[in-house]
Amino acid sequence: MGLTCESCSRGVLKKKFNLRCGEKFVIALAGNPNVGKSTVFNELTGLKQHTGNWPGKTVVNARGNYRYEDMEFVLMDLPGTYSLLASSVEEQVARDFICFGQPDVTIVVVDGTCLERNLNLVLQVMELTHNVVVCVNLIDEAERKGIFIDIKALEEELGVPVVGTIAREGVGLEELKRRVLNVALNIENLNPKKISYSKPVEDAIKGIEPEIDRILKGKLNSRWVALRLIDGDNTIVNSIYEHIYDKKTLEIEGEEVLVNA
């Protein structure tokens, strides 16, 4: 297969992170709790990870595979989080995976019935990686509540692919797979929206970003790391040590999907 990690831009980096990716694309599945991540996961992989209508149902990181257009994808179902500010274990797990696992694409599943709150996470993920596909799930439920989302406009606003889905009925998942592939192959026109911060914050970023960039040599998004540091989040420094300097293997195997859990 020609189009593998080797040919994508971060192929070399992946080797450094000891990520066992073989000839597959690694896709991370992020999102707030109870937005249907596991349902999307099941629909894409054909696995039957137990789903339930309550937040926090997914207690193990499930991993599954799917094929699309003759290419292999490894899908990691990350724990549901409201942000990536690493204030809980789940948030740190999700952040570290997106950060150091260097997935080819990160799908952020959002709940169409409360888009605004979900967008907080989308914007944060987009600060971390450009390769994002937003999956607006539960659009049927939203419509029943009288909420209509202009998917096209949202795509323009965010600058990354946006797909509307009703995962439980399999609606929109073909499109989702197509856009994920496009992003993995670098053929989507990505122009992720940047959050502009207040002047003191932007000034602080400017003060340390060049130096961080010099140290990390593009391994991580330096603006994002700068933000975390002025945010007073020290966990990122430890994570950088663990994953970049200690070269700790990132576990992307996940746990077996429990049939009965």
Binding site: L115, E116, R117, L119, N120, V122, L123, G146, I147, F148, I149, D150, I151, A153, L154, E157, L158, K193, I195, S196
Partner: peptide, 12 residues
């Protein structure tokens, strides 16, 4: 930022 985007794309 999330609020701004939402206002532009959502009709209730």
């Amino acid at each position: 930022a999330a609020e701004e985007v939402t206002k532009k794309v959502v009709t209730q």
